[in-house]
């Protein structure tokens, strides 16, 4: 399904695979598209579901992320284990 709003191109990529910044940017676009409101009920429902999934995914990423620390030795990176 492809349908358009002035600012948002519907994206079918699975939400779970998106990195945070990308998911968040898409979420913002969906909010704007919905608020402009130039869409049918069906389209609106799709946007709604995708938007909520993106918001949940972002929150999950924030809650579950484990900090990754690497160490720069000479010109190479290696994992840093701490003291």
């Amino acid at each position: 399904m492809t349908q358009t709003t002035p600012t948002y191109q519907f994206n079918e990529a699975p939400v779970d695979a998106l990195p945070y910044e990308q998911a968040f940017a898409e979420l913002e676009q969906i909010v704007m598209a919905l608020e402009i409101g130039e869409h049918t009920l069906d389209e609106g429902l799709n946007l709604y579901q995708r938007g909520q999934a993106l918001a949940r995914h972002c929150a999950d990423l924030l809650e579950k992320a484990e900090l990754r620390v690497q160490q720069l030795v000479g010109g190479a990176l290696e994992d840093f284990e701490g003291e």
């Binding site: 979420l27 913002e28 919905l34 609106g44 709604y48 938007g51 929150a59 924030l62």
Partner: peptide, 20 residues
């Protein structure tokens, strides 16, 4: 950030519901 996500999610809910 979580507060911001919640706000966006609310805005989606409100505007998607607006038509109906």
């Amino acid at each position: 950030l979580l507060a911001l996500l919640f706000e966006l999610s609310e805005r989606i809910r409100r505007s998607a519901g607006a038509n109906v």
